[in-house]
């Protein structure tokens, strides 16, 4: 690596355009809403600059706090489900024969390259009243009904009532799991792939069973990858806007939707700005946590 002073002109030419762009069109906008977050909402919804912490105080009032709490809760549940689905998935790919690894990995990440909006929309078609899931349930219901008819108990199942699967918190969680699963699987796969398999063999050799080996050796040695994937899936879920917007009900508003509402219909930009910064601070805290875990467990898994 060269010292920048050795070729100042070249350094400046290469750095300037991107730095300028990111300063003007990324940092200045953030600075503006940071300033707004201390401002006040005028009577017509215009923003008036001020120095008050009122917006932050409002952010921890009952209703916004409930929404923030719900966001954390939904993000946590969807991340846990992601982990439960993603760990076996990552292991299946990482332990597959060499020639199968890349094709399998491609299968896992391909959906991740299709549009977020479209992937979310696809779930509407599955979950709605006349969607695939209810269609399948109705079919199963019909089969069972016929079955009970055969054994002389017709009508036991009653009339089929399609389930309200869409526009509720469960639908939001399903959507978030679907959208974020690849983000969790990729770092997990990367660490599992690098894991020296002789650690697992040594554990088996010393008399531990498969489950014991999994919890005593595999999980501790892949902790950096687990933490990385889990926290990534978590911050993506926490900051989501589209998924609850399309799949959620009146009760499914998350912090992202609240921010959008303040910048949209409610036209309370100072409050929306304060909420944005609350969300960013939570995100930074999670990122900091991830960095701490990564640095504490660095070296583990590489020794030997």
């Amino acid at each position: 690596m060269e010292d920048w002073r050795k070729s100042k002109a070249a350094f400046a030419i290469f750095m300037a355009p991107a730095t300028f762009w990111l300063l003007l069109f990324f940092t200045v906008p953030l600075a503006i809403i940071w300033v707004y977050s201390f401002g006040e909402r005028g009577p017509q919804g215009q923003t008036e600059l001020a120095v008050s912490l009122e917006n932050y105080a409002r952010a921890v009032e009952w209703i916004p706090l409930k929404i923030l709490w719900k966001s954390l809760w939904i993000a946590t549940i969807s991340t846990v489900i992601c982990l439960l689905l993603g760990f076996p998935l990552a292991m299946g790919v990482a332990f597959a024969p060499k020639r199968w690894k890349n094709p399998l990995l491609l299968i896992v990440i391909l959906p991740f390259w299709t549009n977020l909006l479209i992937r979310t929309y696809a779930w509407i078609a599955i979950l709605r009243i006349s969607g695939f899931l209810n269609f399948g349930l109705e079919w199963a219901h019909g089969l069972l009904d016929a079955g009970f008819g055969v054994i002389g108990m017709p009508g036991l199942m009653g009339e089929f009532q399609p389930l309200e699967l869409l526009y509720n918190n469960s639908a939001v969680i399903v959507g978030l799991v679907y959208v974020n699963l690849p983000f969790l699987v990729l770092p997990l796969y990367a660490t599992l792939e690098k894991l020296d398999k002789s650690y697992l063999e040594a554990s088996l050799d010393l008399g531990a069973g498969q489950w014991r080996t999994f919890f005593s050796v595999t999980v501790p040695l892949t902790m950096p990858g687990i933490a990385s994937g889990v926290l990534l899936a978590f911050i993506l879920s926490l900051g989501t806007f589209l998924t609850p917007d399309l799949l959620g009900g009146t009760d499914s508003m998350m912090i992202g939707n609240l921010i959008a509402q303040e910048f949209g219909p409610s036209r309370d930009w100072p409050f929306g700005s304060a909420l944005s910064f609350v969300l960013m601070y939570v995100t930074f805290f999670v990122l900091w946590l991830r960095a701490t875990v990564a640095s504490r467990s660095s070296g583990v898994g590489e020794a030997g």
Partner: peptide, 21 residues
């Protein structure tokens, strides 16, 4: 760290800040 910010901050935050800007 600064140039990685646009990758890590929630999209919604970047969206509303651009609108305000």
């Amino acid at each position: 760290g600064w140039i990685h910010l646009p990758i890590v901050i929630p999209e919604i935050c970047m969206g509303v800040s651009m609108l305000a800007f």
